[in-house]
């Protein structure tokens, strides 16, 4: 009896150490940590944006006497065409980008994950119907789909999240389905069924946790994609409307002043790039950590 208990204990200990192992591998990965630190700084800047610069008086208040000024001590990244401080607008814009990125990915993850799990688990005709629907969505490039949806719904923060979210559902559905397919015939699932677990319990407790690895990687990279989509939509005038600060929209405004004020279009773009870069670094690190055979 004691033997069995200790075996159970070691079993548990092993299970815990798997995630601990992954954590340690991520921490040891220098590139992933660089990504993590940059991302943390960006998130902190976005969280404390109000403390650093007041929204009403600094971010959207125009000051035409100071328009298009280059970087200086007073305005470290210069001012835009309405004399507003670009750094203040960028960190407030970070709130929008990060929020859209996170919320839309959660949305696509939940909807796509459920659809993919059901399709993979039940298979047959059900699987066919869901996945053929997903194929239809995949045949339309996601940015075009998001453009059309946001035009139909009207441009607001929520609609932007929905549009970007819907357009990315199929990729999550496919990933989750593929992982479910590899797991559902394994013995521990059979065992769970044999002791009387119902489908809901089997999917939620046994299958989904085992599909997490690819999903986490895809979600991290997905946030980067969603941030890029948001900026792209705003760049062509379909996203967040002025005077709200949005990176893509700021960049688009800067186009007119490429000759006289280089900094207006340059800095928002650098922030978009750095954010995406940090998420890519972290995503790559997570992938290596979750699948150690890739990195030998």
């Amino acid at each position: 009896m004691q033997g069995i208990t200790s075996e159970l204990h070691t079993g548990r200990a092993k299970k815990r150490s798997l995630w601990l192992d992954i954590g340690i591998r991520v921490i040891k990965n220098k590139a992933a940590m660089v990504g993590f630190v940059i991302l943390a700084v960006l998130i902190l800047l976005a969280l404390f944006a109000d403390v650093i610069a007041d929204y009403d008086t600094v971010v959207i208040q125009q000051d035409l006497a100071n328009m298009n000024q280059g970087p200086s001590l007073e305005h470290i990244l210069g001012t835009d065409e309405f004399g507003r401080d670009i750094f203040a607008r960028i960190i407030h814009g970070g709130r929008i980008s990060l929020a859209v990125g996170l919320v839309s990915v959660c949305f696509s993850l939940v909807v796509g994950g459920i659809l993919g799990a059901l399709a993979g688990y039940y298979g047959g005709r059900f699987d066919n119907i869901i996945m053929r629907c997903m194929d239809i969505f995949l045949a339309i490039p996601s940015i075009l789909l998001a453009m059309a949806i946001v035009t139909a719904l009207g441009s607001s923060l929520l609609n932007l999240m929905i549009a970007v979210g819907i357009s990315n559902i199929p990729s999550y559905a496919r990933i989750v389905r593929a992982s479910v397919l590899t797991i559902k015939d394994q013995e521990f699932i059979e065992a769970a069924r044999a002791i009387g677990g119902n489908d809901f319990r089997i999917i939620m407790r046994h299958i989904l946790p085992n599909t997490l690895a690819p999903v986490i990687v895809q979600a991290t990279l997905g946030v980067a994609g969603a941030i890029l989509s948001t900026a792209s939509l705003s760049f062509i005038g379909l996203g967040i409307q002025p005077p709200a600060p949005e990176w893509g929209a700021m960049l688009s405004n800067g186009r007119t002043y490429l000759r006289s004020a280089w900094h207006v279009a340059t800095f928002p773009g650098i922030f978009i790039m750095v954010t995406i870069l940090s998420l890519n670094l972290l995503g790559d690190g997570l992938r290596d950590a979750l699948d150690p055979k890739l990195k030998q």
Binding site: L251, A265, G269, D284
Partner: peptide
């Protein structure tokens, strides 16, 4: 390569134009 993947096309285009 990672920078290339992370750089928004429209921004890179603008920088090249500039």
């Amino acid at each position: 390569a990672l920078i290339g993947v992370s750089m928004p096309n429209f921004w890179q285009g603008l920088m090249l134009i500039m």
